[in-house]
Amino acid sequence: MKTKLSLFFLLFSLIAAHGQTQTSLNISKERNTWQTFTYDMGNVFKSVGHSYSRPVHWKGEQWLNFAGVAAGTATLFFVDDEFNDWVDGFREDVPSGLVEFGNRYGSPENNYALTGAVYLTGLFTKNEKLRRTGVLLIASATAGGFLQQVSKRIIGRARPKSGESSDVFDPFHLQRVRNFDSFPSGHAILAFTNAYAIAKQFKSPWVKAGIYTVGLIPGFARIVDEFHWISDVAFGTVLSIFIVESIDRYLDSKYDQKYNDGEKKVSWDLNFAPGQIGVRVTF
């Protein structure tokens, strides 16, 4: 399984690189490789700070987006136990290889293996657009990863496998408390951050859909393994989108090579009807 995962990460990196085939290979001749590396890493840390500072600058539309996230998460919160019971009906039928893949792919060490491979490929081939993609991947994963680590300690939500219901909390701990660190899902954040950032390199909706599907597997695996509730995974997935979009906009001012030059916008539409609740995310 480890060999298959290694091959997957290599293939995924090559797919990301393939999306750059028409990009310019020019890099500023004023910087050597070390100077380029330090410039990029500086942008990683600045991007993380930028993403955390965005709420200070939010206006009406951004606050509506936040309200949409809060409303959607709250709605799922009220059905977490029922959804988990529903998954019990097919939990044992899910292929173990799929679950193992999801758990490994969403882990921090494998996440940074992928993001590092993408960045270093761009650095040593002097491909600015691929470097920029690597910076976007690393910065987004770092921002989301740190945020979820802090959130787990503050919120202290019980995991499904703890035997407690979804509304049980043991909050405010400096150290993570075993089985009370469910919200949000770190695997979902890291995996979908990668998928969403890499999918930006492609215009085909079919390619994007395929990459998104791979990015959703870790969240699904964590639900099947009873590490997370559906609201943990859904919130982590949506949070990934907002983090990547925020950092992507910031990096537009730092690199000449760009992709998706059109307007970068994420919007929410909430639809309510008798016996039905719908959430549509446009990005």
Rank of each mutant, 00 (worst) to 15 (best):
R249M: 06
K258G: 04
S51A: 15
V99H: 09
S53V: 09
G262C: 09
F192K: 14
P171S: 03
V244T: 04
L190R: 14
F183L: 12
E100M: 02
S162I: 10
G144W: 06
Q22D: 14
V56I: 15
D170K: 09
V266F: 07
P274W: 02
A209N: 03
G210E: 05
I15M: 07
D170N: 11
L239D: 01
F146A: 08
L76W: 12
K161N: 15
S162F: 04
W268N: 15
V244D: 00
L64D: 11
L10T: 11
W34N: 04
P274N: 04
A209V: 13
D40N: 15
A16D: 01
I189N: 13
I155N: 02
F77S: 07
G89K: 10
F12S: 09
W34E: 03
Y196H: 05
W206M: 03
L76P: 00
D269T: 05
P218C: 09
L120M: 05
L216Q: 13
Q175V: 08
F227D: 14
S151G: 08
T193C: 12
G163P: 00
I211E: 12
Q35W: 03
F242W: 13
D85G: 07
W86R: 02
L239K: 09
K59C: 08
V150N: 03
G102Y: 02
T121V: 05
K258Q: 11
L147P: 00
V79T: 03
Y39M: 10
W63F: 06
L216A: 15
G106I: 00
G72F: 09
S267G: 07
Q201K: 06
V150M: 12
G262F: 11
V56P: 01
F90Q: 08
T21D: 02
A143T: 07
D85F: 07
T213K: 07
F180I: 04
R222K: 10
Y119T: 05
V135Q: 10
S6W: 05
E263P: 10
Q22C: 06
A67K: 09
G106R: 07
V238H: 11
F235T: 10
A221T: 02
E100F: 05
L7I: 08
R249A: 06
V94E: 12
L11R: 02
K254G: 14
A139Q: 01
S13L: 08
G72L: 04
F45K: 01
T73Y: 04
L120P: 00
D181E: 10
F83W: 04
E263N: 12
V266D: 04
L137H: 01
E245D: 13
F12H: 09
T213Q: 04
I241E: 05
